[in-house]
Simulated assay, not measured.
Amino acid sequence: MANIKSAIKRVDVNNKKRAANQSQKSEMRSAIKNVERLVEANDVESAKTALKDTVKQIDKAVQKGIIHKNNGDRQKSRLAKKVNNIGA
């Protein structure tokens, strides 16, 4: 455990940030799973609206550095491909 006052503060800040990042990452993953569930149910309209919200959450995670840019782009691409193939 840290003994220096600044190090103790740093540990507290890191723990708060980690909790916030985990929360946002979890929400993003839940949104992705929701879109995938709607795709499996062949619900086109709901899937498209859910995709918009999910893309927004992924973009926020990328912007805050929670996930890498390429990872976010890959997830958005795969979800869009799934949603677009519902009608086909």
Rank of each mutant, 00 (worst) to 15 (best):
K9Q: 15
K16Y: 05
I86L: 08
K16N: 09
K48F: 05
R10D: 14
I67T: 03
S23M: 07
V83I: 12
N3P: 00
K69H: 13
I4D: 15
K48S: 09
R29F: 08
I32H: 01
Q75P: 02
R37M: 01
S23F: 09
L51A: 01
I8D: 08
D59Q: 13
A20Q: 13
A41Q: 12
N34W: 03
G87D: 11
K81H: 13
A7P: 05
V11S: 08
Q24D: 13
H68Y: 09
V44S: 05
V13S: 06
V13R: 14
A31W: 01
K5Q: 14
R37T: 02
E40Y: 10
R18T: 07
D12K: 12
R29M: 06
K56I: 03
D59W: 02
V55H: 01
M28H: 05
I86T: 05
K56W: 00
I66C: 05
A47H: 04
G87A: 13
R10T: 11
T49F: 08
R10H: 11
N15D: 09
I32F: 06
A80P: 00
M1Y: 04
T54D: 05
D53V: 12
N34P: 03
L38E: 01
N15E: 15
V39R: 12
S6T: 15
K64P: 00
K56T: 09
N84Q: 12
V35M: 05
A20F: 10
E27F: 01
K81L: 13
N15W: 00
N84R: 14
D43T: 10
Q24C: 03
D53G: 14
L38W: 04
